[in-house]
Design a protein around this nucleic acid. Sequence first.
DNA 1: GTGTTTGCAAAGTGTTTGCAATTTA
DNA 2: TAAATTGCAAACACTTTGCAAACAC
Lengths: 139, 139
Amino acid sequence: MPMVTVRPYSQAIDRLRSAGLRPTRQRLALARLLFDGCDRHISAEQLHSEALTSNIRVSLATVYNTLHQFTDAGLLREIVVDAGRSYFDTNTGDHHHFFYEKSGRLCDIPAEMVGLTKLPEAPAGFNISRVEVIVRVDG
Amino acid sequence: MPMVTVRPYSQAIDRLRSAGLRPTRQRLALARLLFDGCDRHISAEQLHSEALTSNIRVSLATVYNTLHQFTDAGLLREIVVDAGRSYFDTNTGDHHHFFYEKSGRLCDIPAEMVGLTKLPEAPAGFNISRVEVIVRVDG
DNA sequence: GTGTTTGCAAAGTGTTTGCAATTTA
DNA sequence: TAAATTGCAAACACTTTGCAAACAC
């Protein structure tokens, strides 16, 4: 087993490259903010201000573009629960969500915590692309 | 069994009165558009243009206010699946939805078509207010 | 060098708000 | 008449777009 050093930069570069995205300074910085820690649900504005706080000079427009590029590339999943605000989920695996109605916060529910035993068939000519379970809680 | 005549106006008036809302001309007209036919998923803009088409003079702001008042009164349920657009569902009973990703349309799934056998507990101190299942289809 | 990406500012979309005029009870 | 409701236009929040300058390869 070879000695391994953590190399966040090259990890992020590889991630972008395999997604077919040029590893520009902005995309790299945003990727590290998004993927270097634990899973998160983040809005464009939040990510933008985190970037500024971390001294990463990036425009809000670029944050939006980047989030959509990452989503199209399968690196993120977009979640809409609240009118007029999109969240981007760094967890693209099979799972569900708690939604805290007052605070607007989201929280993951692992797929195995939900028993879905019956589902209707997709309408003729359509395919089910995803089944989302949202458990709304009143706080 | 008494002889019964369909009286849409007084039905709508009663519905508003029991919800604690004054039966104004605008609210009555919108209530009839919303509740006189089958269940629907409708946006504010859609309802507004339906009203205009039916020669009901009502402003878009009033449509928004009315939809929210109806929602608060339990006559409607608000659904958000798509970034930046709210739908209002005239079916307030227990049910779920197909969401057609391309067209943005919604379609009801009766509760008994979905088998939900296991759910996580609500986080301590919170209550589950609703469980939404959204079946996304790719068309 | 060439094509891609960025930043800016402007435009766009859907929604909410403040307030005077109108309507309801 | 008193309180609730409406319409308008302006304000809003969030998101997208057009285009020249900067950057990656």
